[in-house]
Design a protein around this nucleic acid. Structure first.
Lengths: 337, 337
DNA sequence: CTGAAAGCGCTAACAT
DNA sequence: ATGTTAGCGCTTTCAG
């Protein structure tokens, strides 16, 4: 394991000069620089990052802390985010620690301690529920932090969220444009911040079109397949005249589709369906799902960019990423009879 | 940021004693220990990992290096592995760096340098193609390394692989048991080690049952949806009497199903299909796919365990994980006419 | 049982 | 343009 000491010895200079040369300081003689660079290359020298971090008080490391990392269906959503974070961090010469957590673990180990253990320069927090301890703790901790999917509670933390309100509105508007008036809403669980916003969008769109909001048309489920099916069965029993369903996740939409088929409903002939997320399988499953697409990869890259800005002193802010309606085969114009 | 120095001052002892106390050395007075522990707790002390690594020459860190991390459909397969690695590493008090790479990047930065940059105690390498530079370089590097999906080329590296040969054999045997004699095989691309093994299993199963191996029944595709469809179109044109298809990935199976439907084939009535991987969507898509299931999470945890063994000096070895035939709706007994 | 001192590999004043 | 020195926070001989 070559160190600058070895290089210094071979080059016949002091370690300081080696350090300066290798860090491209301008005050190094052209020839000494060349000699040092060459020796370093020959030795396959790599600076010891621990030593460097120790003196620089900077680890060039960001923590990607994901709550509920192992949730069964998490990959549809989280994977692209992880890829985006990874790619952008790498471009900016940061390495990323992937850390799984959950609500219970958050109660056991303080956010601040988690960050200190590895001296993260900054942290991206994903998968948090609305009451998870780390949200408040992040505000206190003083470690640059970007929240994903939860609006920033203070300007000591930043956040990247999708335009959930707007996304929901465009979903509902699309259904209304297609002639639907009785639109069920299968929302996600209440511990998710996005659920509030998606409900808000649902209400706003109805109001904008002069349609009444009816609590009996809304159910909450867990974002997963099974939840969608169960919620649909319950809702449709109460609202037999409904002609459309808006689901707060694509997975719930597929669960709902399965149940609809069991109950004898044809999609989109009897019932139109809009999902949310734009996960990959909406393109390959039948029917192809009309959905609100989020660019998850870009959420990841944006989070990294914001985090690096914050490390440079910019106060945190909330960035809202556009979400886009993609019309496919699960929605159909209602023919007036 | 509290250090042992701060604790020492408050406790009225030397930093040596603090260090010993906090590391549970036995030669510390019970009462001094208590005093120190209490102060540490009050200060929210966390040891500086850089300082620790520097002197201990151990980072308690493993690198999870994933080639082609951003491949579009990678999540179906990689996510569970990542979760498994993460979970097990965490249990064993290691943190994991997630690093994306690809063939080009491997040509640019040497494996050894990658490892040294962060002083990984060990590395898990996933997603490698058969000719990727890192396979050979891992052998030379002297960093404990576990390969995923590629058999260990030497005993300085270990590897965890699925039982691809056995898996393929049981897939084919299942089809043969169901009366199929003309079985197409849509294999993965040739740069994947698993493709060789799956082909081997295909051949062995045929031979065992006295059936001829016919190269014209085998195609190679890219493991993804589209590849499966194209390969099927080509194969079925040449082999119109085929009644079954074995696909080396579930995704290709779904691509194949789509194409089959386009061409007017009903599954499983006209054609039986077996996939490979056991990804989540095989349970939710219609038809539910008969497939060879791999426990990807366990591949991840096993890799970590093997890696830690190797760090303790155990030579690397190849661990073969069982794969299991799951019979669902896409295969059907052939009725002799 | 405790402390003083050295040193891990590196960077950054401060000379020269 | 280069070297000397100190020190980042921690562990570990070595002495007492």
């Amino acid at each position: 394991m070559a160190t600058i000491k070895d290089i210094a010895k071979l080059a016949g200079v002091s370690i300081t000069t080696v350090s300066r040369a290798l860090n491209n300081h301008s005050d190094v003689n052209r020839d000494t620089y060349k000699k040092i660079a060459k020796i370093a290359r020959q030795l396959g020298y790599q600076p010891n990052s621990s030593a460097r971090s120790l003196v620089l008080k900077k680890t060039n490391t960001i923590g990607l802390v994901v709550s509920n990392l192992t949730t069964r269906s998490g990959h549809h959503f989280l994977f692209d985010i992880i890829c985006g974070v990874n790619e952008q961090a790498s471009l900016r010469h940061y390495d990323v620690f992937l850390i799984g957590t959950n609500t219970r673990q958050q109660e056991e180990v303080q956010y601040k301690e988690l960050c200190r253990r590895r001296s993260f320069d900054g942290v991206i927090l994903a998968g948090l529920k609305i009451n998870d301890p780390y949200i408040d703790q992040a505000v206190q901790a003083g470690v640059p932090t970007v929240l994903l999917g939860v609006p920033a509670p203070s300007d000591s933390v930043g956040s990247v969220i999708s335009d959930d309100v707007g996304g929901s509105m465009s979903a509902i508007q699309h259904l209304i444009d297609y002639g639907h008036r009785h639109i069920l809403f299968i929302n996600g669980h209440q511990e998710a911040a996005v659920s509030q916003f998606r409900l808000e969008g649902y209400k706003k769109a109805l109001e904008k079109n002069g349609l009444p909001y009816d609590e009996g048309k809304v159910a909450h489920a867990n974002f997963e397949i099974e939840g969608g099916g169960e919620a649909f069965a319950a809702l449709i029993a109460k609202n037999p005249n409904a002609t459309a369903v808006f689901c707060a996740s694509d997975l719930m939409a597929y669960g709902m589709l399965g149940k609809a088929s069991e109950l004898g409903y044809k999609v989109p002939d009897d019932i139109s369906v809009v999902g949310f997320d734009g996960i990959e399988i909406t393109e390959i499953m039948k029917p192809q799902l009309t959905t609100i697409d989020q660019d998850r990869f870009q959420i990841g890259t944006s989070a990294v960019n914001m985090l690096l800005e914050m490390m440079d002193g910019t106060p945190g802010y909330t960035r809202v990423m556009a979400s886009k309606l993609i019309i496919r085969d699960s929605t159909k114009m209602l023919v007036p009879d």
